[in-house]
Design a binder for these strands. Sequence first.
RNA 1: UAAGUAAAUUGCCUUAUCGAGCUAAAGCAUGUCUUUGGUUAGGAAAGUCCGAACACCGUAGUGCAAACAUAGUGGUUAACGGCCACCAGUUGUAAAACUAGGAAAAGUGCAACAGAAAGAAUGUACAGAUAAUGCUGUAGUGAAAUCAGGUAAACUCUAUGUGGUGCAAUGCCAUGUAUACCAAUGUUUGAGGGCUGCACGCUCGAUUGUUGGAGGGUAGGCAGCUAAAGUUUGCUGGUAACAGUAAAUGUAGAUAAAUGAUAAGGGUUUCGAAAUAUCGAAAUACAGAAUUCGGCUUAUAGAUUUACUUAAUUA
Length: 124
Amino acid sequence: MKQTYSKRERLKGKKLIDELFSQGKSVSVYPLRIVYKTTDFETSVIAKTGVSVSKKKVKLAVKRNKIKRLLREAYRLNKTTYFNNITTQYAFMILYLGKENISLHKIEQAMTTAFQKILKKEMS
RNA sequence: UAAGUAAAUUGCCUUAUCGAGCUAAAGCAUGUCUUUGGUUAGGAAAGUCCGAACACCGUAGUGCAAACAUAGUGGUUAACGGCCACCAGUUGUAAAACUAGGAAAAGUGCAACAGAAAGAAUGUACAGAUAAUGCUGUAGUGAAAUCAGGUAAACUCUAUGUGGUGCAAUGCCAUGUAUACCAAUGUUUGAGGGCUGCACGCUCGAUUGUUGGAGGGUAGGCAGCUAAAGUUUGCUGGUAACAGUAAAUGUAGAUAAAUGAUAAGGGUUUCGAAAUAUCGAAAUACAGAAUUCGGCUUAUAGAUUUACUUAAUUA
């Protein structure tokens, strides 16, 4: 799998997201919280992922954008390691709960532990 | 040289690796695939405060009232409450800056201190006049004392203007679900459903089965959506805002929302060390398009340019 994150791999559509939030399970590792759910897509993508930063926590649009980009970057670079053994299709929503300033490195760490937690839960 | 005033410009760069949106071409495996190329945020994109374009709704005529906005004079513009010029006033040594610059001879209200009294009340002293009296004058307070004045960032009056909602406008396509309605067809001689696939059997079964039309418009998609009162430069007219003209140029279009991340190096500024070269550390702002323009307002590290004022020094 390549380290891409194209339009097809993004979580879109009101229906899917509503479903995800109403029926999905969640795992939180500060400063992240990941909501996930098994689903079926028509396209041949293993996972669809969305990213969200709340306006209440981070007020300036520039900083919000920056954090979203970092989240996407962290996901893009590490998704190969996360989804090695997965065959079913998933939908993810990554929520950011923390402060305004954060580095890519920290986000990567948090994301890795969070996805490991999810894998454990699903396998057992 | 120092301090200041005004106007204008700019607002980090380079390389490597890994990516994202839009778009063009090519390829065959015809996939919303692969490869290659192009392109991708600001001076305020912000606040949403004015003015327009555009769209829909309302009124489809005219007048009045209310509410709101504006308020020297002239010009400019698609339009404006913006901008420019001039006059007046205020502040400043000055360059300049600011303006809450229509009306007090329509009415209502308000007014510190002083003063007897700031409006329906005539005090004290002196003088004059008279039958008598605030009947007359002077003194004293104050900006103002039967003479009326100030105040409209008080009501008010005058003149002028204003319908409402905003691209989540609006138009189009339309999966699924339920079905008012219409047509065809099937029918108590049993359509069709249920009992695990078939047969038999049992059972339910008429405002109903199937097919088609039509309506509605949810998920989603397409248009609107970027060539525009465009940008840059020169020339001409004008004190200027601005206008005219010629040439060049083609410059984001996302939608759970692209325009990025990481690493290295270099600028710039500040601080410390040093005679310099240089070395080390820190900082590198405000801020992210969402239909589009013209303004206003607010935020902003730093850098640059021009004009002018004041003070000092030198010639």
